[in-house]
Nucleic acid binder design. Structure first.
Lengths: 243, 243
DNA sequence: CACAAACTGTGAGCACTGCTCTCGTTTCGT
DNA sequence: ACGAAACGAGAGCAGTGCTCACAGTTTGTG
């Protein structure tokens, strides 16, 4: 039986039989080899046969673990989301003064930037162009929400402390409140719609910047990415009402 | 001789011999077939052999026109940039009241959004993840600047009319002025550094939003993309000092 | 006009890919 | 202990990008 991603996780908790533990180890080895290949040759050139060669097994055996090359890529995708999410959560948690929401935002944004530059191919896998007609499996949505959740929560904390955007000069109409409804509810307490909208726009700015930088669209416009990124993050902090 | 992209353009101006015009026509036919394939199966699955089959020729013959599959994709890339650039320029030019810079910005942003949704695969080709280790050929940079140039120019026009962001509360330091220097000089007159920085941030917001929307990262957050996009664009207009 | 050089299309072929299927072996649950 | 499930190996299919030698055509020039 070819395991789903959800089963992979449940399995890693309690590998009972010898076969199950062997399976878990080999699954891990395949993912590690694939991750390495991903970093070396990129997603397009990732080859099941090369992974099999690397592990000294027949290519057909790999299909006992991942039903297709796309399934393997999806597993890497989930791991990448989780890795990024963990990096962002750690960066935010590392800010000792929890009331310094501006610092928490800078740490969050910096973590995204740093992670993306450290793992460009994994970033491309997650936030680049998906395989056309590709619908992200349900397994990917929860890990994908970890990073943005940090931003939303720190904004909620800011609002609780009397800072942060509360209104946008009447620029958010009822239809927009409905349109962004689902995302407002992920924090405790829920964000006001205006704050949610600003947060989404800032999120788009952050990933837009990282994508434009990593994908080479700023080569002739910006000479020093670090300086420019810091400025953009500061602007976003201002827009979010944190600074 | 396999033609470069630059030669392709020069050639299409003055096809003298019968052979040259046949070559131009077949080059065009290959590009058209490839564009159609691109829309149907996406960039990853675009196949030289399939294009050849579509045109009823041997696959090896295609290589007389494009040295490799990547070269063919690069040609499609350049055409996509040009197409998007033209759409944006037309949308801006269609605003009869040239002093209504907010309307021009909405038209510009809307053109990007509309074009991307009409040609998702071509958008992915231009603003999605590039082939890893891929350095955009010099042929692509000029067409790629057409769209952002519209934003920069309309902001310059706004400033000339007494509107638009002039300073950002001292948030732009000298290093940043140097970092974004090259881009400030593309308008006439040149933009103040603060305006350039804001424009770049807004540009990142725009493409960040379109990418997140098209690549499926907002599926569980936003219910109505049109409404949300309009709000984000309005926010950007406010940030740019246009509204 | 003649002719060599350049160009163009063909088909065979190489190395590679994702994936399937069958086969024998090993391990598991009962 | 035994049947079922899982496993790994190898052959094989259909497809890919790309190269090459070959044949035919067009071109600009002597």
């Amino acid at each position: 039986m070819v395991l789903s991603l959800g089963m992979m996780r449940a399995m890693s908790d309690a590998p009972r039989t010898a076969r199950a533990v062997a399976r878990a180890e080999l699954t891990r080895a395949i993912l590690d080899s694939a991750t390495q290949q991903l970093a070396e040759v990129g997603p397009a050139a990732l080859s099941v046969r090369a992974v099999a060669r690397d592990l000294g097994m027949a290519s057909s055996a790999v299909y006992r673990y991942f039903a297709s090359r796309d399934d393997l890529l999806t597993a890497l995708l989930v791991e990448a989301y989780d890795d990024l999410g963990a990096a962002v959560e750690e960066a935010d948690a590392a800010v000792t003064d929890r009331d310094d929401v501006a610092a928490r935002w800078r740490a969050t944004a910096g973590a995204v930037h740093d992670w993306a530059r450290a793992h460009p191919h994994r970033y491309a896998l997650t936030y680049g162009s998906p395989v056309p007609g590709y619908a992200a499996p349900q397994d990917t949505v929860e890990p994908a929400t970890r990073a943005p959740r940090v931003l939303l929560q720190l904004l909620a904390d800011a609002l609780a402390a009397g800072r942060g955007v509360r209104d946008l000069g009447g620029r958010v109409d009822p239809a927009e409140v409905a349109a962004t409804g689902p995302i407002s509810a992920v924090t405790e307490p829920p964000l006001p719609p205006e704050a949610t909208v600003r947060a989404l726009a800032v999120w788009a700015t952050l990933f837009g910047h990282v994508s434009l930088e990593l994908f080479g669209h700023m080569n002739n416009a910006v000479l020093d990415y670090d300086t420019h990124f810091a400025t953009v993050v500061d602007l976003a902090a201002y827009d979010l009402g944190l600074a």
